[in-house]
């Protein structure tokens, strides 16, 4: 091989090597390792591992908390799609409507601010909002005469999960709204003008033009919010001290964290990570399929 040939062969290697190394060592190797770990029992503070075959998996099938957690993740997903995607789209359509043109920058900016705030700050804030006696929410309800609605939002198994879900909505509606605004601004103005000449109402125009035109974005945002719902960790970890009361507001990520780092069952935590992996793989494939169809 000549020097020149050598160079053309190895030059691309040099460019992609740092990326491949990092991804290989700190992403793919742990991923593979996680599958191996799921067949062992081990502790965070010792180096010895015991091979136990499928025991973690049989435990998984008998573990009620997994069902509670997955149900809560599903609740997150459904509520997030309704509020973030559907409501976010409606908000975007309203703010892009010319009737609100003059005020929309103000609204748009305000609605987006929570996105820029760290989730731990937001959870601490909602901790204050949900306090049973001197919390903003209960105090506000009493103020407007709705004492009957006051309750220990995070202290009841019936409301804790919904209260934590509400926090994510508060933070993220603005983000999805902004994605839709970007998408709506790409719609050619002529489409609307033609519809207006035909005398279509605004609601009609929304369904006839806006909705079909942002169809792809609709899928994308749905997938983003659903994927996000699988990963929910911070809100229950901070707000309900790891999914309390009992395990009523636990999610699969919190269950994994607690199994591994609180109950010191690292092997079982890896098994739960496998569950998370399978779910995100399914969603990822779906995402790829949608992007493919979008490219055509």
């Amino acid at each position: 091989m000549t020097k020149r040939q050598l160079r053309t062969t190895f030059e691309p290697v040099l460019f992609v090597l740092p990326s491949v190394l990092l991804l290989g060592v700190f992403m793919y190797y742990p991923l593979v390792q996680n599958f191996v770990y799921s067949f062992f029992r081990f502790s965070a503070f010792s180096s010895s591992k015991v091979f136990i075959g499928f025991q973690n998996y049989t435990h998984l099938l008998k573990d009620d908390i997994v069902i509670t957690a997955l149900r809560n993740n599903l609740r997150y997903a459904i509520v997030s799609v309704i509020f973030q995607v559907c409501f976010g789209l409606v908000l975007a359509a309203i703010l892009e409507d010319r009737a609100f043109r003059r005020v929309s920058p103000l609204f748009r900016t305000m609605f987006f601010i929570p996105v820029t705030i760290s989730i731990s700050v937001i959870c601490l804030l909602f901790g204050f909002i949900y306090r049973p006696m001197d919390g903003l929410l209960n105090q506000f309800l009493s103020l407007i005469g709705l004492d009957v609605l006051t309750r220990p939002w995070l202290g009841s198994a019936k409301t804790a999960i919904w209260a934590t879900i509400a926090v994510s909505q508060w933070q993220s509606i603005g983000y999805v709204m902004m994605l839709f605004i970007v998408a709506i601004q790409k719609i050619p103005e002529e489409l609307y003008e033609a519809a207006e000449i035909d005398g279509a109402t605004k609601i009609r125009r929304f369904f006839a033009i806006t909705l079909p035109q942002v169809k792809e974005m609709f899928f994308v945002t749905t997938l983003i919010t659903v994927t996000g719902s699988v990963m929910v960790f911070n809100e229950p970890y901070i707000l309900t001290q790891g999914g309390g009361p009992g395990t009523s507001s636990i999610t699969i990520a919190v269950h994994m964290y607690q199994s591994g780092f609180f109950k010191d069952m690292m092997g079982y935590a890896s098994t739960l990570a496998v569950v998370i992996f399978l779910i995100s793989i399914i969603l990822g494939i779906l995402q790829l399929a949608v992007f493919k169809s979008g490219e055509d």
Partner: peptide
Amino acid sequence: NIKVADAFMRGCQALATNDKTIDQVMAD
């Protein structure tokens, strides 16, 4: 052991909110 303590503590939280029965907690 922390696993047993956790089952008691979480279980009793659920008892307090009437989300679990004593039998369920003891089973856990």
